[in-house]
Design a protein around this nucleic acid. Structure first.
Lengths: 125, 125
DNA sequence: ACTTCATATCGACATCCATCAATTTATCGA
DNA sequence: TCGATAAATTGATGGATGTCGATATGAAGT
């Protein structure tokens, strides 16, 4: 025979919505993610959740000058140009890529510190 | 008038499939993600791309003893038990959570180093 | 103005996904 | 053996998402 311990009948964990915290230095272990925060932080990971978008980031990061235009990205991914533009837009909206238009071309580059900041979200979960 | 420079007509970036690399120490900037790698790495981020799953990780991490059972998780998320079980399964499959059954209860805890490892993927993109 | 090229946007379609209600599985206590 | 409880599984459904073809926008050169 064995003995199993459990606290009361059901749950007992707090879940606090930290409102607008003053944007500084998450001390690691606080209340637990509220619904709003979670939704916002999930957006970045949603952008990272597609294989082709990961490859886009990788290629852009390793490209000469740290930037690449759409025409440089369609072939290695074996995707149509509209699809690549679509993925790039998602990455830009997520704050991971920066878009700069020069002439007819649109050059995409990594937003400095964006990946590190995203990594920080995981550490501060 | 302005002058725009571009290399040849179209793309020129290499994309190499590194086959089974011997599982060691990615030196930061290599070939660029191949299709297979990208697909595999996207799985973890797919698991992280849902707000409720982020909250699950957060709650489990902050729970007493570093573990929590399903019955402790349904209420704070305001989700049905089957849905929570579904999310937990996805997190386990992604290698982020560990499941241990004791008695009637199933206790979930963070896989040590899993979040850090995931953060490492971003740095090594 | 007209053509050409790079990119963005639109509309459609097939697939995936989060969620729930209902059921099943499994374990404990009586 | 028989409930009672916790959790997983199944089936269904509405909504999001990746992809493409076609079209629109916009800038450069002739």
């Amino acid at each position: 025979m064995s003995i199993y311990v459990h606290n009361g009948q059901m749950n007992s964990l707090q879940t606090i919505e930290p409102g607008l915290d003053e944007a500084c230095c998450a001390p690691s272990d606080l209340p637990a993610l509220g619904a709003e925060e979670a939704q916002q932080k999930a957006l970045v990971f949603k952008a990272l959740s597609d294989p082709n978008r990961l490859r886009l980031l990788s290629i852009v990061k390793g490209a000469g000058g740290g930037e690449a235009c759409v025409c440089d990205l369609t072939e290695p991914l074996d995707l149509g140009q509209p699809t690549v533009s679509h993925h790039l837009k998602i990455l830009v909206d997520a704050g991971l890529l920066h878009r700069e238009k020069r002439g007819t071309w649109a050059y995409y580059s990594l937003v400095p510190g964006a990946l590190e900041k995203t990594a920080g979200i995981l550490a501060a979960l």
